[in-house]
Design a protein around this nucleic acid. Structure first.
Length: 231
DNA sequence: AACCAGGACGTGA
DNA sequence: TCACGTCATGGT
């Protein structure tokens, strides 16, 4: 695999050409009434890289980042909607909410016992930061925030140039022979950050495009890589 | 009816 | 450090 740098850049352009701007991170329509009939909220905002803008939107991204751990986004939407209905997409309100009530709201997103605790932990942290951008190490110190969640929060909530690696990233680029199958999180993250210009919209789109592509072709074996092999 | 989902934590080698 | 079990609901 010679010249991983140009390869990773060209794969990005190929994905962008295939799927277009993804508009991550999705935000609930805070003025809206209800989830759509399909159960899927819209919330995506292609080519708008200034979101989130408000403290509440930033907090919503953070809640979603924790709720979506090993969980489909459609399930996360249900939990987020519950939290919005209860008026706790706000750190102070969330902390004042009865734990059992919080668990019921989180339930549709799975792992509701631990995720409820995680949401309380990140709420305290969010209040403590008081609007300041946290360092990566600081967020990693919060219980429930691992490598991917930390980078997701920094990249999508705080517009920091931290590349997000997930299981899909390892699956696709492992299968393409760019990385070893058992590469560590930081190895993969460092590779992408060394190969790509340090650009927030690029990082945001690349990760979202990887997820979109993986959902289509990397859920079930045998994986079909021809969509990226020729570009 | 397995298997997977935009992982993280606790434990024991 | 690292492999492994655990956490849980919901869709295919």
């Amino acid at each position: 695999m010679p010249d991983k740098e140009s390869y990773l850049i060209q794969v990005y352009h190929k994905l962008y050409q295939l799927y277009g701007p993804q508009g991550w991170w999705p935000l609930m329509d805070l003025e809206g009434e209800n989830p759509t009939k399909t159960g899927s909220l819209k919330g995506y905002h292609p080519l708008n890289y200034s979101l989130p803008e408000t403290s509440q939107q930033r907090f919503e991204v953070i809640l979603g980042a924790i709720l979506t751990q090993n969980t489909a986004w459609t399930s996360v939407e249900k939990a987020l909607w519950n939290l919005k209905r209860m008026g706790v997409v706000h750190p102070q309100n969330l902390l004042e909410l009865e734990t059992e009530i919080l668990k019921e709201a989180v339930r549709p997103a799975g792992f509701f016992n631990q995720k409820s605790v995680y949401l309380q932990e990140i709420s305290r942290f969010f209040l403590k930061m008081d609007g300041k951008v946290p360092a990566r190490k600081e967020i990693l110190g919060v219980k429930g925030v691992g490598n991917e969640t930390a980078d997701s929060i920094l990249l999508y909530a705080y517009h920091q140039p931290q590349f997000v690696v997930d299981a899909y990233t390892k699956r696709i680029f492992g299968h393409l022979g760019v990385i070893k199958e058992n590469s560590s999180y930081m190895e993969v993250k460092n590779l992408f950050e060394e190969c790509l210009p340090r650009n927030v919209p690029l990082y945001q789109e690349y990760h979202a495009l990887i997820v979109e592509h993986a959902k289509r072709y990397y859920q079930k074996r045998p994986y079909n890589e021809i969509h990226l092999k020729r570009y």
